[in-house]
Amino acid sequence: MSDTTTKDWTKTWTSAAAAIHGALAYTDKSHYSLVDVMGITGHAFRINIDPIRIDVAGPTMFPGGYLIRRNLCNLGFISSLSDTEKPFSPEKVEKVMALIQQSVDRGVPAISFDLFIPEFGLIYGYDDDKQLFYAKDVSKEGTVTYTDFVESRNMLWVTTIHESLPHSKYETLRMALDMIVDHARGREWQHIFQGKYVIGLAGYEAWIACMERREADPFGNAYNAAVIGDAREFAAQFLRELVVRWNGTNVIERTVRKMASEAAAHYERTAVAFAELRGMFPFPQGGRPDEPEQAERAVRLLRIAQEAETSGVEVLEKLLGFMKAYWSEQWIH
């Protein structure tokens, strides 16, 4: 088994979900755990592979504005976005600064990217007199000058939580499953990343092919194994918690419990394969993915993970189909 008995469920390698969870703590939905956020946003089920060398950037190379706003929608929020690209006009800069400051003034941190390292983080304060933002990401907590925030990046990327809406747990789960299955089947909108990264179940074939060519970057390979392995442990835990929380008082609840239990077993097998991969290729050292015996063993483990996750996706697809059909029936009658 992957070692979930000692796992700290308050920490994840997926910085997008960590940032969303951090922002949620300042809203009326602060009851959502990181496990809930990883599952409902679909980040526990993501795989985003650079097919050429399994580059370290893979896990964060997705259309962030689209995806993070859809994540927040699943959680029951209306959000605002800036993804302004260079060159920045003074008017655009002013609007982005106002977006951040208004969110902080409402008491909710703004979600941003590449504050200190190329990962997602939070801007939680500002000082106009000193021209500083107060920010935090997975690497550190500190300050970013207004000038640095504008001039040292190619995109002013900020998402802010604007308004909270009530969602039933049924609608929340249906939206989550929709997102999970879209990603797994490669239907997720990729925007500028189209053709550069391989998403979902097809990501396994891209990873395996790179291993077979002996061209995997040791650092990137280890990072992807760490991020995706951690995510699959969260996926299995999210599904196990659904089994416990849904009380079985109606046909939807009983179906969710049954199928979540089935899917959890598949994702646990995926997590176990990744636990072994992470042992072979520890981050940041990286191991030797170019060494034939190591590469062949890695391919076997990736095939085990791929087969288990494919079975898991099939179960979640059936559950999504059931929930959609049930809802259609309710609307008709």
Rank of each mutant, 00 (worst) to 15 (best):
E215P: 00
P218D: 08
R187P: 00
W246Q: 09
V256A: 01
M179N: 13
Q237H: 02
W207I: 07
Q190Y: 06
V198I: 08
T249N: 08
A260H: 09
E212N: 10
R187Y: 15
F193L: 13
W189H: 07
V244S: 07
A176V: 03
A235I: 04
I208N: 10
H191E: 14
A222D: 01
G220D: 06
A176T: 01
I228C: 00
A209Y: 09
G195V: 10
R187E: 14
E205G: 11
Y223F: 15
I228N: 05
M175Q: 12
V251P: 07
F219N: 04
I180A: 13
V198N: 01
W207K: 06
A225L: 13
N221V: 03
A236S: 13
G200N: 06
R245G: 12
R185A: 04
E241V: 11
R214H: 14
W207T: 14
A202Y: 01
E212Y: 05
V243P: 07
L242F: 02
V181F: 08
A231P: 04
A184M: 03
E241W: 04
S261V: 00
Y223K: 14
D217M: 03
N221R: 02
A235H: 03
R214F: 15
R185Y: 13
K196P: 01
Q190W: 05
V227N: 12
Q194M: 12
F234I: 10
C210R: 00
S261F: 03
L242E: 11
E233K: 11
E215F: 01
T255K: 15
G186V: 09
R232G: 08
R187Q: 13
K258V: 09
Q237P: 00
M179G: 14
M211S: 07
D178Y: 03
R254T: 14
F219G: 02
A235D: 08
